[in-house]
Structures are given as structure tokens and as C-alpha cells.
């Protein structure tokens, strides 16, 4: 019964990575497809494996790539942090709302998630442009005298990422907080905690798995994000997803793109495994 999905994922999810790995060791060639085979017949009967580490060496020598990796991690980390700062109080508030209100608020969190990411990112262009809504409002209020440059800046990129990934953080966090026994907070207050101390000593440690799961759902995809930096970040927003895209589509350097993908994957696999173990713990109900 599980054989069909199993084989499907094996063929279309696992095997492709092996191919990516293989191509990352190939030479770039002006051909279709634009890379040289890894195995070559040398003479008549001997098959030579030519492992080519040039692509990786290239990635580590050209500072552009390392810079892009570092910047992606920084952007993803800060975005995750901002999502947490905005999302935690929201998830908490929703979890403590009356059931009827709670369902409406949840629906409002889920709704943007169902509308196209592309269109929601596009909306920010209209807001952040030089003659966009925000500048128009600020100008008409007299708070500024000339338009602020917001679009195509790191600021715009952060706004876009936080905006797009916020629901991914709120939902698992809410699911965790919703299971919380609020009487524990009363018990803590009864034993002498002020409300914020009770939050820090009880709620926060008990929602650890929700925080981790939500953060991972933001951090991991954000590291490889392409659309948001491409639309909001401007030409010098160096994100690794964009580098990969450009190597592949603009430069047709498939082996380099593959090497980037492999390095990115190696970087993210520990986080993915962490995420999976957090999920397993959360569904087992252990604290």
C-alpha cells in the first residue's frame, strides 16, 4: 500500500539529488545538456570516473558565493527572529482567545497562506515604491518631505520574507500553545510569580517545540528563497537561491548550480533533521 508513494518519492525526490550530486562533479560544456558525462570510456574496456572538484573549488575561491551563503543565513536568521517577535504574541493571543474568536483569527492567519505568495510579494512593491502608498501617506501627513527609498533595499527584502513566512511560524506555535494548560500560569502566580515571570518560567519553556518547529519552517526555506529577493531586494541582494537561479538560467552553468545546490543542502540537512525530531517529539506529546 505504501509502496506506490514510496517508489514515487524515491524516484522523484531522492534519485534527483543523486543526479545533482553527480552533475556537480561534471565539467561545464557547450552542449545540450550543458555538462560533460562523469563516466568516460577510456580506451576500449576501461571506464574512467572523472570526479571534478573544480566547481566546488570555484565556489570556495570566488568570494561571491561564500558571501551569498553567509548573507542568506544572516537574512534567514534575522527574518526568523522577526517572525518570532511578531508571531509569538499573535499565536499566544489566538490560543487564549474565546473559541469562536479563535477560529475566526485562525482563519485570518490561514487565508493569506492560501493566496499566491507571488501576488502578496507584489503587493509590497505597490506599498514600498517611491510613489507608492506608504510614501504617499507619509508625504501627505507631512512626516517626510521627499519619498523614502524602500523598494529594492534589504529592508524591503526583510519585510517581504517576514510577511510571507509569518503564517508558517504562527500555525505550529499556535498548535503548541493551544495544548497548554493555562492553570499552570495561575499556579505559578499563586507561588509568587508576576505574570511576566510566569510567562518566562512556564509558557516559554513549554512552548519550546512550537518555537523550534515554527522557526525551522521559516528559516530553512528562507535560506534558499528566490522570489522575494528577486522582486523586492534589488540587484545586489545577494541570496544563494538567486545565485543558483542565475547560474542555471542566465549562465547555463548547470554543474556550478548543482554544486551550489549540494552545498546548500548540506547546510540545511542538519536543520531538517532537527525539525523532524522536534516534530516527532511534539506529536509524541513529550516535553
Amino acid at each position: 500500500m505504501v509502496a506506490l508513494p514510496y517508489l514515487w518519492l524515491l524516484l522523484f525526490f531522492v534519485v534527483p539529488f543523486i543526479i545533482v550530486l553527480k552533475i556537480s562533479f561534471s565539467d561545464v560544456a557547450l552542449a545540450i545538456p550543458p555538462y560533460k558525462p562523469l563516466l568516460e570510456w577510456v580506451g576500449k574496456h576501461s571506464l574512467a570516473v572523472k570526479l571534478n572538484f573544480d566547481n566546488y573549488a570555484f565556489l570556495f575561491t570566488d568570494s561571491l558565493y561564500l558571501h551569498a551563503f553567509a548573507n542568506s543565513i544572516k537574512v534567514a536568521f534575522l527574518s526568523t527572529l522577526m517572525c518570532l517577535i511578531i508571531g509569538y504574541p499573535m499565536a499566544y493571543g489566538i490560543a487564549r482567545a474565546k473559541p469562536a474568536v479563535r477560529n475566526v483569527l485562525l482563519l485570518l492567519v490561514i487565508l493569506p497562506f492560501w493566496t499566491s505568495l507571488l501576488l502578496r510579494v507584489y503587493a509590497w512593491i505597490g506599498l514600498l515604491k517611491a510613489n507608492g502608498v506608504i510614501n504617499n501617506v507619509l508625504l501627505s501627513l507631512g512626516l517626510i518631505h521627499e519619498p523614502l527609498t524602500m523598494l529594492y533595499t534589504p529592508f524591503a527584502m526583510y519585510v517581504g520574507i517576514v510577511y510571507s513566512y509569518l503564517p508558517f511560524l504562527i500555525l505550529p506555535l499556535y498548535a503548541n500553545l493551544e495544548k497548554m494548560d493555562w492553570q499552570l500560569l495561575e499556579a505559578a502566580e499563586d507561588l509568587g510569580c508576576r505574570p511576566w515571570q510566569a510567562f518566562y518560567k512556564i509558557t516559554l519553556p513549554l512552548s519550546r517545540n512550537g518555537i523550534l518547529a515554527g522557526s525551522m519552517l521559516v528559516f530553512i526555506p528562507a535560506v534558499g528563497e528566490f522570489v522575494i529577493p528577486a522582486l523586492l531586494g534589488g540587484p545586489n541582494a545577494l541570496m544563494i537561491g538567486r545565485v543558483l537561479w542565475d547560474e542555471f538560467f542566465a549562465n547555463r552553468a548547470w554543474p556550478v548550480a548543482s554544486a551550489v545546490a549540494i552545498l546548500l543542502l548540506l547546510l540545511l540537512v542538519p536543520f531538517m533533521m532537527w525539525y523532524q525530531s522536534v516534530q516527532a517529539r511534539e506529536s509524541a506529546g513529550a516535553r
Binding site: 495561575e186 499556579a187 502566580e189 499563586d190
Partner: peptide
């Protein structure tokens, strides 16, 4: 007076023991 300043303690029905 808030609970954390009362010379009173409570034993909750659910016990409310901190699970962590």
C-alpha cells in the same frame, strides 16, 4: 491584591504541576 502577593496558596484540581 494579586495572587503573587497573597499569603495564600492553592492546590489546583488538576494539580497544575509544571511538566518540565
Amino acid at each position: 491584591v494579586p495572587p503573587y502577593e497573597r499569603p495564600v496558596n492553592m492546590m489546583f484540581q488538576s494539580y497544575a504541576l509544571f511538566p518540565h
